[in-house]
């Protein structure tokens, strides 16, 4: 493979007898921002979990740069270069901000991003480095989650609902960071229920409806009504 890509082919995800994702395929290139939109329960989060190996049961092929990563455990997938900023942030609530950031496997190793880089991006985290993560505001917690994922030095960054529950100005600040991350050659997948903002930030999008891809392509290629129809079903 000449061009680095994250490829998902014919993936289905199950919870017990329930099929949350149905035969979904998508690709993300390096330095590209791709949105996955869809209503609550459309299977977006399940898809991201499956990519990083946290689905209960999943079928299909998931590959990075041509190499199959579908059968590796989550830590190995993360080390291979796919990082997830999970829904609900999943910080360690009783650990300090600095502990949360500095625990990643790559932190402190040569070549990768350093703690100081994260503090440069989010100066407020440096001020609060000794506070337990649970006392932070929602926006600050999301910064820790994003910083923690970046410290894993990923090639591909998956963001699950990073704007959920945050004030509009905070969301705008977070989204303003994305182009900078992209320009470092990192492929980004944004999963959002909020269509407008994520579509504006991305070059391509996939819309999910009841576990399947109902529409995909460039946001400019479709009118608002077409996207809305594939979002809600008709």
């Amino acid at each position: 493979m000449s061009e680095p890509r994250l490829t998902v082919e014919g993936v289905s995800v199950y919870y017990g007898p329930f099929r949350a994702v149905h035969d979904v395929s998508l690709t993300v290139g390096a330095g590209e921002i791709v949105s996955v939109i869809g209503a609550n329960g459309a299977g977006k989060s399940s898809l991201l979990k499956a990519i990083v190996g946290q689905a209960d049961r999943c079928e299909g092929r998931i590959a990075m740069n041509g190499a199959d990563i579908g059968r590796m455990g989550t830590p190995a997938i993360v080390r291979a270069g796919v990082a997830l900023v999970p829904e609900g942030r999943r910080l360690f609530p009783n650990l300090t901000v600095e502990e949360n950031l500095s625990l990643g496997w790559r932190v402190g190793r040569r070549g990768g991003p350093r703690l100081a880089d994260v503090y440069d991006i989010f100066p407020v985290l440096k001020e609060r480095r000794s506070s337990p993560a649970r006392v932070l505001s929602g926006g600050q917690q999301q910064m820790v989650a994003l910083g923690r994922a970046l410290l894993a030095d990923p090639r591909f960054l998956l963001c699950d609902e990073i704007s959920l529950g945050l004030a509009p100005t905070v969301i705008a600040d977070l989204y303003a960071l994305l182009p900078g991350i992209r320009d470092r050659g990192i492929g980004i997948v944004l999963v959002e229920q909020d269509i407008g903002r994520s579509l504006r930030a991305s070059t391509r999008f996939y819309c999910m409806l009841e576990g399947r891809i109902s529409l995909s392509g460039s946001p400019d290629a479709f009118d608002r009504e077409t996207i809305t129809r594939s979002y809600f079903g008709s």
Partner: peptide
Amino acid sequence: GALIRAVSDDPGAASLIGLSP
């Protein structure tokens, strides 16, 4: 110690940052 606390808090989140619980 931070590793141990993190992993026993939330092993899933720990593996998301590349740690092996």
